[in-house]
Amino acid sequence: MFDDLRDLYQEVIFDHNRNPRNFRVMDNADRKVEGFNPLCGDRLTLFLKMKGNLIEEASFQGSGCAISTASVSLMTEIIQGKTEAEAEELFKKFHEMTTGKDEHFNLEAIGKLAVLAGVREYPARVKCATLAWHTLDAALKNEQQSISTE
């Protein structure tokens, strides 16, 4: 019945929506940033545990649609063990992929995150996918918004 939506709602997305990974409050987080999309009410809190410039651990809490939940769940999996620079680079690529400006975007280069490429065809849903990454960007760039447990 929903054949047209197969590109947008891939099985991986349903899976992450049903069982979000790293879905927990991190008590000893070095950075904690809230992301909010007032248009749709999606709300998430991203927690990062840093080791130097390395993202040692990432987790989140919040509520949102399947696209935004899957996106943040996938993101927390992928950024663990990456440096800040590597994470920023991924954000850039993810942004390019979801806003669909580059027709020749190499989906293989972005690995697992390619399952979210379907939002390109749904302009109203792009923000659902990118909320997680904008929140990460804020966590990495804006020290004032972060909290320290020390």
Binding site: F2, L8, A66, C128
Partner: peptide
């Protein structure tokens, strides 16, 4: 199921 997912899915119909 989030309302936005409902909206997109129903739109496809």
């Amino acid at each position: 199921i989030h309302p936005h997912d409902i909206g997109t899915m129903l739109d496809s119909l």
